[in-house]
Design a protein around this nucleic acid. Sequence first.
RNA 1: GGAGAGGUGGCAGAGUGGCCGAUUGCGUCACCUUGCUAAGGUGAUGUACCGGUAACGGUACCGGGGGUUCGAAUCCCCCCCUCUCCGCCA
Length: 429
Amino acid sequence: MLDIKLLREDPEAARAGARKKRMPDRALAVDEALRVDAELRELLPRLDALRAEQKSAGKAMGKLGPAEREAFLDGQKRLKVEIQALEEREKQLRAELQQQLSLVPNLPDPEVPEGKDDSENVETRRWGTVPEFAFAARPHFEIGEAQGWVDFTRAADMAGSRNYILFGDLALLHDAVLRFAVDLMVARGFVPIDPPLLVRDAAMFGTGFFPGGEEQTYRCEKDGLNLIGTAEVPVTSLHGGEMLAEDVLPKKYVARSACFRREAGTYGKDTRGLYRVHQFQKVEQVILDVADKARSLQHHRDIVENAEDLLQAFELPYRVVAVCGGDLGGPQAMKYDIETWMPSRKNYGETHSASRFYDYQARRLDLRYRPKDGGKPQFCHTLNNTVAASPRILIPLLENHQQQDGTVRVPKALRRYLGDREVLGRPVW
RNA sequence: GGAGAGGUGGCAGAGUGGCCGAUUGCGUCACCUUGCUAAGGUGAUGUACCGGUAACGGUACCGGGGGUUCGAAUCCCCCCCUCUCCGCCA
C-alpha cells in the first residue's frame, strides 16, 4: 500500500508506476482513490464538528438534573440523526478508499528496466560455464524415470496433473538441497522458522498477494484459510500489527515450507517434468528492517548473493536478471531473478526471485518500529528471496551433472548430506 | 466438539453508562539531587486522521463488526483470539 499523501502530492508518479508495470487498470485506481479521498476530506471536518457538539452537550447533560435534561434531548436527538447519516457515508468512503488504495501497485524503482514481460528482463551478470556434453544429454525427467526416481503417472492418477512423486536418491537429494539451504542461511545469522502453511486472508492481503492472486491460491473455504504459495506470506506477516523496538531490527528469517500454487492459466506451459508443479518445498529468506532505502539496497544485494553462493556451491551456471516493469508484481519496487542453466530447455530457467518492497507490505501489515531517536513510529522495509526451491532446482542439478551412463555426479557441497556419495544412481544406458 | 474465564496504551494491570483517551506500575525521555556501583526527586511520554507555518485545537481508537442510548471501554448480539477443565486425536 502506498501512502495516500504520496498520491495527493504526486498522483502521476503512481499512475506512471502502474503503467510501467503494465497494469493500466491499476492506474485507474489512483484516480478513484483520490476522488474518494477528496470527498472524505470534505466530509470529515463537518462530521468532526457535529461530534464535538454532541460530545460537549452530552458532557454537560451528565451534570444536569433529570428535569433540565429534557430541554437538551430534542437537539441531541436531531444531532444524532445527522451524525448517523454522515457516519454511514464515512464508512462507505473509508471502505472504498481502502479498496482502491490496496489496488494501487508499489512504485517501481527508476532502475527497473522498461519492458512488457519476462522476455525483456535485463541480464546483469553470468556465472559459470554452460556445459558441453560429449554425449546425448537427457532431460531431467528422462533421467529420473530411468532411475526410478520420479513417477508422474501415478502422481497424476491420485492428485491430478502437475504433480510428482519422488523416490529413492532423488527424494534424498531433494531433502539435501533444502537442508543445505537452511544451514547456509543459519550460518549467516538468519533465524530458522517453521511457519504455518494455512493462513488467513489478512496475511495474504498484507503481503500483497490479495487482491489479485486469488486464482493462484488454494483456499479452504470452510475455514477461511489459504494454503501459502511461499513462506514469504507467514514470515513477512510474523510481526504484523506490532510496534517493534528499533534495536531488534533487522530481523532476518529463513523458513522452509511446502508451497502450493494452482497454476491457473498456465495450461500447456511447462507441462513436462518438475518445472511447474502445484506443490513444492522452498527455503525462503526474509528481512525486516528500518525504513532506510540504502539499507534496503544493501540487504537486496546480500540476499541475492546468498542465493548465488548456493548455486556456486552446487556448481551450477546461472545468470542474474533485473526484472522489467511488465514482469514485476504489484507489491515489488524492484526484483532480481536468478535463472539457472537448464540444458533440456537450452536456456536459463528461473530458480530464484529476490524482491525489495520498501514499506509497501509493512503498511498493509501494520508492521512498524519505534525509532531510537524518539521520532514517530515508522513502517518497516521488507525484502525476500528464494534460497532454494525444490524440486525445480533438481532440474539443473540432474541435467548439468548427468553422466553418459545416466548416473548423476553430486557436487562436493552436497555430499555430506548424502552419506558422502559422489554419484547417485546406477548406470542405465 | 462441550463448559467456563479473559482480550484495555511500548509492556504489566485498574476501570461496569456521562466527571475516562482512560488510575497506577514498569519502560522511555528531560531536568534535579547524590562525589563509586546503585539509588532518589520532579516533569514529560499512545496511535491515526482533520485544521494550522507553528504553538495548539478538533475527532476517532479500550480484540473486530453490528446494536441499544441524548451519551458506551462499561449494556446486548455475532465473529476472532488467548487461557483453564472435559472429550477427541498426530
